[in-house]
Design a protein around this nucleic acid. Sequence first.
DNA 1: TTGTAAGCGTTATCAA
DNA 2: TTGATAACGCTTACAA
Lengths: 346, 346
Amino acid sequence: MPQKKVTFDDIAKYTNFSKTTISRYFNNPDSLTLKNQEIIAQALIDLDYKENKVAKILASGKTEFIGIIVPNLYLHYYSEILNQILASYERFGYKFLVFAGNANETVERQYIQELLAYNIEGMIVLSHTIPSRELASYNIPIVTIEREDQYTCSVNTDNYMGGVQATSLLYKTNCDVLVHINVNVPESIPAYGRIQGFLDTCKECNIPYELLLKDLGNTYEENRKALEKVAHYLDCKYIGKRKGIFLANDTYANIFLNYLIRLHGSLPDDYRIIGFDNSPISSEAVIPTSTVGQQIDKIADMAMEILVAQMNERKKRKPNLSGEPIHKVITPVLFNRKTTCVSETV
Amino acid sequence: MPQKKVTFDDIAKYTNFSKTTISRYFNNPDSLTLKNQEIIAQALIDLDYKENKVAKILASGKTEFIGIIVPNLYLHYYSEILNQILASYERFGYKFLVFAGNANETVERQYIQELLAYNIEGMIVLSHTIPSRELASYNIPIVTIEREDQYTCSVNTDNYMGGVQATSLLYKTNCDVLVHINVNVPESIPAYGRIQGFLDTCKECNIPYELLLKDLGNTYEENRKALEKVAHYLDCKYIGKRKGIFLANDTYANIFLNYLIRLHGSLPDDYRIIGFDNSPISSEAVIPTSTVGQQIDKIADMAMEILVAQMNERKKRKPNLSGEPIHKVITPVLFNRKTTCVSETV
DNA sequence: TTGTAAGCGTTATCAA
DNA sequence: TTGATAACGCTTACAA
């Protein structure tokens, strides 16, 4: 320590009040006379007091910490969610201890232990690694986002609705056949809804469709190779037909689009493309790509609201800790861009 | 609190040791007999003890907290740096309190006050808002990354070298004229080096060049409009000449590239393009785009190393707090992709 | 409206 | 190798 810190004791001596009064000045100033408030305020300046939250936490038990575990920050979706959550500091004042887990269960358990050791008041989990059942067992307020959530409160995009929106849009652009390209999403994960939404809409519209669920690899290069193969396959199979392609995310959509552009110099009129997420690549693509946008700001806000409500509940005299976990669903927003325009020249 | 927490006192009673001995078990286990270590270890299990770091911090003064202020997480560069910094937890054990500032000085000062209140041991600043002089005055270990850094330790990409690399590569692809497109970067910011590197290399190679520094707007749409205007201008001005375009970042490069593709269906042979950052858009573009890659992992590692060294210095009996700030520079890496290939058909 | 004193759960300093 | 005891800087009854 370069210079030792000024404490309530110092202020108390300086002002001839007690430590308690100084504490009150911060936590319940109205209980002091205006004059005394001013005296203390001046003393704070004179002594250059800096508050010590650690001591406050120890005494009060309230850390104002929220732990966050994201799978990574490489994907725009996660970094944007984190961005929005961090922004909630202005509104709620909670501070965030952030961990990026790499899908390693052991490591993520360590993170959680560490977070608990700091007496975090709540936790937001985006990582998929640890089952919601185990998360719930830690017995602190938790909200999960877009992951398996049977035993925890959660906020998810209405993926089913998104699937319906995307498929309906394609249908309206006079396609002959609709295709959904995705990986084999387990039904327990919210994103599965995109597949169901696609299927139900195709059936309802009574339009020919094809569902392509396959492993597309884990890196961009693997994605690219796998999707170019799929594109080639579709190109051959549905020759002369107008194909409406709904891809599971914008990265896939961009790969598909780029493949066509490189082949034909522009987007052929017999293709309609839509992605999912409204990530930057969708608007920054060579042809701005239609997509189903997740309302990340709303998701983050809702997650914080649920979490704060639960944390507040715990601070009550007789907290009501019962009740089923709350599951909120946020409606996605359709972005109708150039890749789903009805062609002007028919 | 649902169930009250097990403390050293409880363990002490349970094992008939003193609190001190329990503390020693954690901090200096070798000072206990093996047998006693085992007894305590068993007690921890029996009682299901969870450590309380807040109490530890208060008593020891060591928080193991590092504060981070990033401008935002929207830009891939920042989220990836944060990603790498968070990953250093495995190596150093420091926890990160993260704030995303929005270029608002008042707000960022609040963040810093809040961080200081938590007795953070050090701080990493990527945000540009607060002058390094003020940062230095807070008198705790600080490392800044890719920003004005006169009074603080810093880690930056060797922007000058990056400018030289990009320009040299363009020169080698038989261009008739080289162009650098950038905004008006102040000289105090590391990124200014890109401009200087371009200028020096052009002069050295004795090749015609043009430096275009202008406001390109703050949103993607503004960027796009401004850059398409620039592209049109260059297209007209240097008709028939091979143009080597070095853009300040990959987003700009992508916009430029897309403009040409939409116009011509492919990248015309009289254009060579290179960006900066190696952000995902460069490899995911319709034509994988050459770029100067920042070694984000090394930048993050170096920042942590410098910071940890300083934090350790403070823990010594007689810390040596003098000395000029350390400025480290990380060499960038050239990615030679399709937009700077020498054409096969001449 | 203000003060006293007992915590909060560790670590640190002595002494044994 | 272990234990008593005093910090650490604040909050929170309870009293005045």
